[in-house]
C-alpha cells in the first residue's frame, strides 16, 4: 500500500512559523508501524525530520505524538489501523500543550516539573524489618496500586487533556497517576503530604472528568479512575 504523511514541521533556526510537509511512501506493509514509516521519511527523503524515539516497542515512552488527531506512541501504531485502501493519508503533529522545539520534538521540562512536584518517590511508613529482609505486603495490597505502576511518563495523557491545554500550571493526569502509585501503597507513609499537594488549586480539581486521558494511555491505565480515587481520598482519606 501507499501512505502519504502530512507532518507538522518547524525548524527554529529557519522557520518563523510551523508548516505542513507532505511525504509519500510506497511499498508499505499494513503492519508497519508509524515509527518505522517516519524513519523511512527521515532516512530516505528528508534527514532534517526530527523526532524522539528509542525502544520502538511501547515501553520507553519517547515517541508520543498526535496521529490523526489522537495521542499515540508512534511505535505502537500500526498503519493498517489508520485507514483502509491502497493509499491512505496520515497526519502527524507534536503533542499539544508543551512548547515545540523542532518538528515533533517538544520541551518535556514542564511535564517533568509537574511529575517531580508530587513527591513521586517512596516515603516508607516504617523502618526496614529488624531481620534486614524485605517489608511484607499481601498480594491484595500490592494489587491495589498495580495499574498506576505501569506509567512510562510518555505524556500522552497529560497532553490530551483540555484542562492542561487551557492551563499549563495544572499538574496533569500523569503526575496524578504517579502520586496514586504511592498514595495507595500500604508501605508508604506520605499519602497525606501528596494529597495536600494535589488539593491545591492546580491539583486534581482542575480535572473536569473529560476522559481524554484514559483512551490516550498506551499502557491502558485507567487514568480517569485513578484521578477519581485521588479526589475521593482527598475528601474522605485513603
Amino acid at each position: 500500500m501507499k501512505v502519504t504523511f502530512r507532518i507538522r514541521r518547524f525548524n527554529p533556526e529557519k522557520d518563523s512559523k510551523p508548516w505542513w510537509g507532505e511525504y509519500t511512501l510506497d511499498n508499505v506493509d499494513p503492519i508497519d508501524r508509524v515509527l518505522e514509516l517516519l524513519h523511512r521519511v527521515k532516512w530516505e527523503q528528508d534527514g532534517t525530520l526530527t523526532l524522539r524515539r528509542s525502544c520502538a516497542h511501547g515501553v520507553c515512552g519517547s515517541d508520543a505524538m498526535r496521529i490523526n488527531g489522537v495521542n499515540r506512541l508512534a511505535c505502537k501504531m500500526l498503519v493498517k489501523t489508520l485507514g483502509a485502501g491502497d493509499h491512505i493519508k496520515v497526519q502527524v503533529e507534536p503533542i499539544l500543550g508543551l512548547p515545540v522545539i523542532k518538528d515533533l520534538v517538544v520541551d518535556m521540562e514542564p511535564f517533568f516539573d509537574h511529575y517531580r512536584a508530587v513527591m513521586p518517590y517512596f516515603m516508607p511508613k516504617e523502618h526496614v524489618p529488624a531481620d534486614g529482609r524485605e517489608r511484607l505486603q499481601s498480594p491484595a495490597d500490592r494489587e491495589r496500586f498495580d495499574d498506576t505502576t505501569k506509567c512510562i511518563l510518555c505524556a500522552c495523557c497529560t497532553t490530551s487533556c483540555p484542562s492542561f491545554w487551557a492551563n499549563g500550571k495544572y499538574v496533569g493526569p500523569a503526575a496524578i497517576v504517579q502520586a496514586h502509585r504511592f498514595i495507595f501503597d500500604t508501605r508508604d507513609g506520605a499519602a497525606a503530604q501528596r494529597l495536600n499537594i494535589l488539593a491545591e488549586p492546580d491539583g486534581v480539581w482542575r480535572c473536569r472528568t473529560i476522559f481524554n486521558c484514559t483512551p490516550a494511555c498506551p499502557r491502558e491505565i485507567e487514568v480517569t479512575r485513578a484521578i477519581g480515587e485521588v479526589k475521593l481520598a482527598i475528601q474522605r482519606g485513603v
Binding site: 518517590y121 517512596f122 516508607p124 526496614v128 529482609r133 524485605e134 517489608r135 511484607l136 505486603q137 499481601s138 498480594p139 500490592r142 496500586f145 498495580d146 505502576t149 502509585r181 504511592f182 501503597d185 508501605r187 508508604d188
Partner: peptide, 15 residues
Amino acid sequence: EHMGLPFDRTDDGRI
C-alpha cells in the same frame, strides 16, 4: 524493595 520497588508477592507477603 526497601527503596519502594513493587515486587509481586507470595501469599505470605514476601518477594
